[in-house]
């Protein structure tokens, strides 16, 4: 198969991701699949995910897709979204500690309780849900045409805390400053949901389906 494979490991709703990709993919095929073979044949891989970290890792392992992801990140243009970013790190605090895929060195942490908004003093809600500004910290083909500090749609309670600052692609502010996108070689992964982020999100997906994996 040539085209885009969206990895389906039973965690969350992949329809939105597939529909947004189809909208920008032109003639490229978009396939939602859990087949290792189909994933390895695809030109590029999208790795979404929602829900709890433990369930995500367990399902990946049960379907044998943990190895497929590890293989895919070596060579092909690869886009992780939301939990598809978080499980790329070494470990998460969620569910009393969950081992990740260890592709990016670092950990996944929970937003601190009792965070307050600086101006109003109001309690900050968790999950961090809604449109927040994404501050690009590097130039990258996937940021092409997207204005600095554009808003993207987020929904999450945990955030990544990478060890290697050279792998940070963007940050955002919610009580704390946190990393909301990471990039290394052919891999790009975002905490926000480009498929739900209107023009800015579609621009990022459009950049991804045309990206050759070089930076």
């Amino acid at each position: 198969m040539t085209g885009v494979a969206v990895i389906d490991y039973g965690m969350g709703n992949l329809r939105s991701v597939a529909k947004a990709l189809e909208h920008v993919a032109g003639s490229a095929r978009v396939e939602v699949t859990s087949s290792a073979e189909r994933i390895m044949q695809a030109d590029r891989i999208v790795f979404p995910g929602q829900g709890a970290a433990r369930d995500c890792m367990a399902e990946l392992q049960r379907l044998g897709l943990d190895k497929v992801v590890k293989e895919a990140v070596r060579s092909k243009p690869f886009l992780g979204i939301c939990m598809g970013l978080q499980v790329l790190l070494d470990a998460s605090e969620e569910n009393d500690g969950v081992q990740g895929l260890g592709i990016f060195p670092g950990r996944v942490r929970r937003f601190p309780a009792q965070m307050r908004e600086a101006q109003t003093g109001d309690m900050l809600k968790i999950p961090h849900m809604g449109w927040n500004q994404v501050h690009q910290t590097i130039a990258h083909p996937l940021w092409q045409g997207i204005a600095q500090d554009s808003r993207f749609y987020f929904v999450h309670s945990y955030y990544v805390d990478p060890t290697d600052s050279a792998q940070i692609a963007a940050t955002a502010q919610y009580g704390v400053e946190f990393v909301c996108a990471m990039a290394h070689r052919n891999v790009f992964a975002a905490q926000f949901h480009p498929e739900k982020s209107h023009h800015a999100g579609l621009a990022l997906l459009s950049n991804f389906v045309r990206w050759d994996g070089n930076v």
Partner: peptide, 28 residues
């Protein structure tokens, strides 16, 4: 869902896990 790329919430008549799955699969 095929034309509008912002979050969509659907309510009304959702009674079961099966109802939820149908709505999510439709693009909610």
């Amino acid at each position: 869902a095929a034309q509008v790329f912002i979050p969509l919430t659907v309510g009304g008549g959702i009674r079961s896990v099966a109802d939820i799955r149908r709505m999510l699969n439709a693009g909610a």
